[in-house]
Nucleic acid binder design. Sequence first.
DNA 1: ACAAATCCTACTCACATTGTAGGAAACAAA
DNA 2: TTTGTTTCCTACAATGTGAGTAGGATTTGT
Lengths: 137, 137
Amino acid sequence: MLSKKTKYGIKALTYLAKTNKECPVQISEIAENENISVKFLERILLELRKAGVLDSKKGKGGGYFLARQPKDILMTDIIRTLEGPIAMVPCVSLNFYKKCDDCPDETVCAVNKLMIQVRDSSLAVFRNNSLEDLIRS
Amino acid sequence: MLSKKTKYGIKALTYLAKTNKECPVQISEIAENENISVKFLERILLELRKAGVLDSKKGKGGGYFLARQPKDILMTDIIRTLEGPIAMVPCVSLNFYKKCDDCPDETVCAVNKLMIQVRDSSLAVFRNNSLEDLIRS
DNA sequence: ACAAATCCTACTCACATTGTAGGAAACAAA
DNA sequence: TTTGTTTCCTACAATGTGAGTAGGATTTGT
Ligand code: FES
Ligand code: FES
């Protein structure tokens, strides 16, 4: 199940991409338009900024704005930042690999082989969708 | 993240498919060979039986066995039984559809459109893999 | 009758998710 | 330089979910 955090993050980013403003957009504006708790969204946008997807400006007239062009922000970036691994088991994760404690040998593990296929197919979708693709469709 | 329940379920089923015995196999035997808590596995196999994937025999000499041929047991059956929806958001689930409470209109929701693609690609993998495919690879 | 196995419900415990509180730091404008 | 506005950051609370356990009821072969 997709976490609310990731869901809210995607919605906030699409909001920023759609309302293609020059000036920074405040958290409260995004939260209001997308029905998200202000304080929760605040933390989410902070994570996205630290990941280099967003940039921000403090003080009066401040707010958030995209750090790159929408076409250069891939879903893989967003998902990995907010949701974590794309793979369903740690042993097939490209960016968050970890051995499965309960499988003696992953080269003969049926779950491993199945989940590699699932990872690849999901990854293809996320890689193939930029923020621009999302607001176009 | 794939739950332990589903992971254990798949492993138990592949064990049954591999050790292609005539007689029923006891929970304790599967649990021991696959490093699974006996009582936890007991509940899992019960769910699979209720879903029609497994069948069982009680009393002495009893145990579990596949209800169908391995090639006729698809991953979609197993995942939906143990893990629940394949989709990452309820609004794109084929078998467990539910409206998203926080999205006013799913026809204009970017998350919805993205997750439909993810669902379709995952579904293709699960539909394309039977229990027989898993033990062959 | 007895032993061996599944069946079934309820319970506990640990952890993650979701959301909130409250202030510190930066910035612009008066 | 003061004031108000905004992001920044940490800690906390409430809730929900996952994982595993306990204990007995039921069925079945010998
Ligand atoms: S090795 Fe990771 S699922 Fe078996
Ligand atoms: S309608 Fe389900 S994610 Fe927006």
